[in-house]
Every structure is written in C-alpha cells, then in structure tokens.
Nucleic acid binder design. Structure first.
Lengths: 277, 277
DNA sequence: GCAAGTATCTGGCTCAAGCCAGATGCGATA
DNA sequence: TATCGCATCTGGCTTGAGCCAGATACTTGC
C-alpha cells in the first residue's frame, strides 16, 4: 500500500508516457476527481470517520469549480462511501457491522429456552441497547399481495396489522409490518396489545394452535422511498432490503405474514438450510 | 442583516412535542419538483416506458432553472424510478419481474431429474434466453474471508477460482465467483473446463465424494462499485445483492464457496425453510 | 423512393456568482 | 472558569450562461 506517491498534478496534461493496456478513457472532471477521491479512501489516505476537506479546498486542489467538487463528492455519497448526515461535514463511512438475522430466530426451542427475541440478542451481541416499538395495531382489509399469501380474500376478510419499529441504541434499524388473519387474532393480545408476554409473538400463535413449522422468506432490495429515508434515517447511498416473511404452521397453513424493511447498512441475512434430497 | 429579532428564545424546544399532523415542511425547489414528478409517476400520469418531457420543458413548467430541473430528475433516478441509460431520454422505469432464486436450486433430486440448472429454468420461465459464461478459471491463494469459510489457510493453501457471468437475453444479470479447494478440484474438470457435464457443478463434487447436504447463504445489499456498474450494466439507482454461498457436504464439511453479485432490479431470493424444533 | 447530409434539439456537464442556515471557533464578559 | 455572542466557515442549493456530443427530424439530391 504505497500511499507515498500521492500524485497531484493539477494540470491536466496528457502526460501518458507509457500507455498501459488500459486506454485512459477520458473522464469528465467530476469523475476524474471522484475516482481519485475514491482511491484515496480505499487506500486509507482518508480514514473512516475522518472528515473530508471543505468543498472550497477540494475545488482548489483539483482545479475545478466548487460546484464540480460538490458533484464529485455526491458521486461517492451515492456509492455509499461517504456519509453526509444532516448538514454536517461529509465523513468517510467505515464498514459497519451488520446484524445477521437467520432462520434460527424462529426456532421454537430457542424461543422457549431463552425467552429473548433474536433481534434483541443480536443487538446486544454488538454491545448496543435494543428497543422495539409497536406504535399501531389496527384491523384492516389485507393488501392484495398479503391476502394471496395468507389465502384470504382482499374484499371479504380482515387482518390485524401490527407495525413494529426496531432500534439499536435508539438508531432505527428496521421496520416490520405483521399481518394476522382476524380469525386467528380475534380476542387475543395479538389484536390488542403491544406486549406479547412470554414466548412473544409465536408463543401466542401457539396458544391458538399454530406452531411454526416452516417459513418462507422472499428477499429483494431497492432504494428507499423518501418516507423510508426519513423514518428509518437511511443515509444517502444506502439501499433497503425487503423481506416478505410468511409463517407456516404444522398443517402447512400460512398464519402470518410480516413485511420487513431493513437498512442495508445495518442488516444482513444468514441462512443455513438443509438440502432435501 | 442579522435576523437577531428572529432568534428563538425558546431555543431547543422539544420541537417534536406536539407537531401538528403534517406541517407543510417547506421544500427546496428541487425536492418540490421531484415530489410532484414522483406523484405523477406513481399516479400513472407518466406510464412506464414513457419518456419524460425535455429538461427545458420541465424547467419552464415548474418555473425553475434548467439546472434545477435536471437535479430534480436526478433525485428520481437515484431512487430508481427513472432510467437514464446512455444518453437516451430519461424514461419511467416500470416494475421488472424478478428472477426468484431459492434453495431448491441445490436440490439433488431436482438436479438429477431435470439436468437443467435452476438459473436456466428461471430465465426460461420468463421467456428469455439464458446464457452462462465462464471466462476464467484460475488457481490462486484464497482471499482471507473465503479461506475462513472453507477451513483453509490463506497463506499455504490453494483454491480454484471460477468466474461465471449470467445473462438473460444477453443482458447481464449476475456474477458468481466460485472457490473450490485445490485438493478437491485437482485433476478434475472443476479445475480446467467451463463445461461441467451431466449434473453440472454439483455432479462433479459428488464424483469427488462431496454430496451437498446443506448450504449457508449470507445476504447483504449495497450500491455497486463503478466496475460492477460497468460490468453488470447496473442502472443508476439500483443496488446489488451480495450472496456468499457455502456448500456443505454430508460430513458437515464446507467444500465450495460462491460469491454472487446480483442486480437487485432483476434478482430476488426465495427461501422456504423448515424450522427445527 | 431512398440515401445522405444538415439543422435542430436534447441531456450531460462545467462554471462563476451568490444566498442561506447551521456549525465552529474565539474572544469578551460575568 | 464557564458562558454567551458574534464573526466566520461550511455545505446545500439555485441561477443563468454556455459548451459538447449524440439523437432526431428534416431537407435535399440522386
């Protein structure tokens, strides 16, 4: 890692003495500058957590207008290399440790033995304080895609919709919206209370005769909507992971669907799956 | 011009104490314009595939400078709502059908019965033509994280590195880099040939006494690097999904690791998992 | 009817100038 | 010493001007 030769020839003379196999591929200034900055970051010249020089400085160093310097920084922000929360000085983003959520979080035994939710366990493993907020429980008609997964009718049936926000050290991490057939939730805490009691959510399903036997998880990723950016405080240049989770009971019946929206800079998934013959 | 008279003596008031339902939340022009455009797109005023009016038109309609109009469009591009391939006119991006890849793609029975790779099957299901390209097979020292997963030493051991590019109708879809311990690959087509023969990759592992019994899949998501943007032709505003896949045999030994990089606009994952008690 | 050539339009990009509000630093004051 | 107030700095944003190369449409000549 020879960071000694930080060439900074501000004049854009061709200067390509020996043309490598790669053609220079002439770049517009914003990209030339973004590339240099990116290399510097990857080579550790700017350390994670370190603030970048001011736009006005950068502009002078790279011999561009301040506007252009700002554009170059924006490129790296969009790539997720630089963080620019609020109006603070843009900062080099370091690799963050991911919460690794796996299928064992649904294990019946684990639930019974520890009594602590896997999300909490995972957060505490990182030395942070978990918090789960359930700001709303409502009775609604299921959205069409949810109805399909639960085997319900979007016109005739009802579901309980439970909204859960997950925090680590008060930083929003993910959002989960759980849909439960009214038939199952009716008359239980599932339909009324944020506090699920011993064994948590799946404990209550078991009370109603639905023991979790299998799950389906449909995973995709996309850029957050503006609402999600605000609600989850997703930094610029960070996508979200969508997980549509379906809980399936011992009779092969789906009894619950949860749609997770996770910040991709804080969450990952980790599945160990036995392959059936 | 000190606006001293505006100074809040009630400074640092809780602020989110009893905010009204929705304050207008004054927006800068670029966001105001981006919001209107986004609504129009979501309300179907601009149909998927339709071209946006010219920047100069938009600027006039929204009463901003052309620069600002361009910035507003860029916001929607970064959100993934608008596509601006090449220098073509920005176009409203429609929802794309995802390739849904699941764990059953590793099923031994499925492999033996159909003989066709799950990727091919999934692509053909969409009426497209699959193609897999294996441009390089090399013998290298394993990267540290790979070595750890295979139980090898990054200094002493070797692995075969196989690079695979996956296309649907000649559009790049994903990239997979497979690492196989040299001990296993030595002397087989695994180390030499792109063509795997009947039963494909996992058929050859079985020849060497490694029947797949379990897999581990570690999933995360991020924005693509510039190289990936170029190689996979990832459109602006689209993340990639990283999957680190580990194949585990009947003796609980890992025998293969593959790192997938998938375009998130074309790929999704779909796992059905039995929950152990 | 068709091909070639041309004028126009478009998006991408850069620049210089300037306003604003929040952050920062520093000195004066209590 | 601790706190307040102010000057300054910073990033974010907007504007209007202008250049460029590729796309498009239109004309002209064969």
């Amino acid at each position: 890692m020879l960071k000694a030769e930080v060439k900074r020839m501000t004049d854009q003379s061709p200067a390509e003495g020996e043309t490598g196999p790669e053609e220079p591929e002439k770049l517009v200034p914003r990209h030339r500058m973004a590339n240099e900055l990116r290399d510097d970051i990857n080579n550790g010249i700017y350390e994670p957590g370190q603030k970048l020089p001011s736009q006005r400085d950068l502009a002078e160093r790279y011999n561009v207008a301040r506007n252009t310097a700002a554009e170059a920084v924006k490129i790296l922000i969009a790539e997720g290399l630089i963080d620019n929360r609020d109006r603070a000085r843009p900062t080099v983003r370091g690799p963050r440790r991911l919460l690794r959520l796996g299928a064992e979080r649904y294990s019946n035994r684990l639930r019974e033995e520890t009594g602590v939710s896997p999300f909490r366990a995972e957060v505490e493993k990182q030395g942070k304080t978990p918090r789960v907020d359930c700001p709303s429980i409502t009775k609604i008609r299921p959205p069409a895609d949810i109805a399909a997964r639960l085997g319900l009718s979007a016109e005739r049936d009802f579901v309980v919709r439970r909204e859960n926000w997950y925090f680590a050290d008060e930083e929003p991490v993910q959002l989960g919206i759980t849909y439960i057939p009214w038939e199952i939730a009716e008359g239980t805490v599932l339909a009324t209370s944020a506090n699920m009691g011993k064994g948590s959510l799946y404990g209550r399903f078991e009370d109603r005769g639905h023991r979790i036997a299998a799950i389906r998880e449909e995973i995709s990723s996309r850029m957050p909507t503006p609402e999600e950016t605000k609600g989850l405080k997703v930094p610029a240049g960070v996508p979200v992971i969508d997980v549509i989770h379906t809980g399936i009971d011992q009779d092969d019946q789906p009894f619950e669907v949860t749609c997770f929206t996770m910040r991709a800079d804080l969450n990952g998934l980790d599945y160990r799956i036995r392959i059936e013959d």
